[in-house]
């Protein structure tokens, strides 16, 4: 700056000038302050291993790589929770495309599905997290703005109906399109999955999803070891790391083994119908062909594979 005195010619001073000493002192102090400021990072770093840091994208893992990864994750679960979990990686079956239908005429809003999801998928306990959000709606209106997800009174209220919303497993999922690192994609059986070890946590998918289907791990999920569901899937219900996205996978660790999703089994009203859309004999196909179907936000053109229906 023009107002500053010219730097003292060091050679003339025959050594190190006072100014240089001060500068050095300042720089040292600054560095020390910086080290202190970012010290919390050192407390965080041990929570991620080098192997995890260097892990490749799910689709680039060879069967051997994948086995190593699964074993590592099981080991880490054992270290952290003292629980023997089994993390499987079931692949999509050829000839299967999952579809889900929900009968709005009989759903009574008890949220047993949300609870089953909460327990099955190892969700964060304090936040009551669940991939299903049930809205109490006014009869005669489809306006979600008049809906309420926080009801606590006994159900089913006579002037209400109930609209559970979860991932619609869109045919054209906008959440997949927007992901900058391909951490989320649509599997051949129609399930939109997330590689929790690849997601960078930018939450663009959460902004893009029109169904509020995605959840972010704002912190490490809190779950008591004895409550952990030990039957886990790499792409589904294993305990998620902090700072990544998660979503409903139609319980693919169950459904790819042929089993029904947890939310369906828990439903006390039998409102839920699940099955293979490609099998003409399946229950889901019968519903689609014989019932009045309502698709949430159909006008967005995302072609959900989740259908609402009514009894005649």
């Amino acid at each position: 700056m023009s107002t500053s005195p010219a730097p003292a010619p060091e050679a003339a001073a025959g050594g190190v000038s006072r100014r240089t000493v001060l500068k050095g002192l300042g720089a040292t102090l600054g560095l020390a302050a910086y080290a202190k400021a970012i010290a919390p990072l050192t407390e965080w770093a041990p929570s991620t291993s080098i192997d995890e840091f260097l892990q490749r994208h799910y689709k680039e893992l060879s069967p051997l790589d994948l086995r190593v990864v699964l074993q590592r994750l099981e080991r880490e679960a054992k270290q952290e929770y003292g629980v023997d979990v089994r993390i499987s990686d079931l692949k999509a079956q050829p000839g299967v495309k999952f579809g889900y239908a929900l009968n709005l005429s009989v759903c009574n809003g008890c949220r047993k599905c949300a609870e089953a999801c909460h327990l099955e998928n190892n969700h964060d306990r304090p936040s009551h997290n669940s991939y299903i959000r049930v809205f109490e709606m006014s009869r005669g209106s489809m306006d979600l703005e008049k809906g309420n997800a926080h009801y606590t009174h006994p159900v089913k209220q006579p002037d209400k109906y109930y609209l559970p919303v979860q991932c619609q497993q869109c045919e054209h999922p906008p959440c997949v399109d927007v992901c900058p690192v391909e951490a989320t994609w649509k599997e051949p059986d129609g399930i939109v999955v997330v590689d929790y070890n690849w997601c960078i946590g930018c939450r663009y998918c959460e902004a893009a999803c029109p169904y509020h289907a995605r959840r972010f791990n704002w912190e490490k999920p809190k779950i008591a070891p004895e409550e952990i569901n030990r039957d886990q899937g790499y792409l589904s219900n294993r305990v998620r790391p902090q700072g990544v996205m998660e979503k409903c996978t139609f319980c693919l660790h169950r459904t790819r083994a042929g089993r029904l999703p947890a939310c369906l089994e828990a439903c006390p009203t039998g409102a839920r119908v699940f099955g293979n859309l490609l099998d003409p004999q399946s229950e889901i196909r019968w519903v689609l062909e014989h019932k009045r179907i309502f698709i949430l936000k159909e006008e967005l053109g995302l072609k959900p594979q989740f259908f609402y229906f009514f009894d005649a």
């Binding site: 809003g109 949300a114 009551h128 997800a149 926080h150 009203t269």
Partner: peptide
């Protein structure tokens, strides 16, 4: 269907 008490109300951040 009888009246039932709903479970697990959302407790979002």
């Amino acid at each position: 269907q009888p009246f039932v008490q709903p479970v697990l109300p959302p407790r979002d951040r």
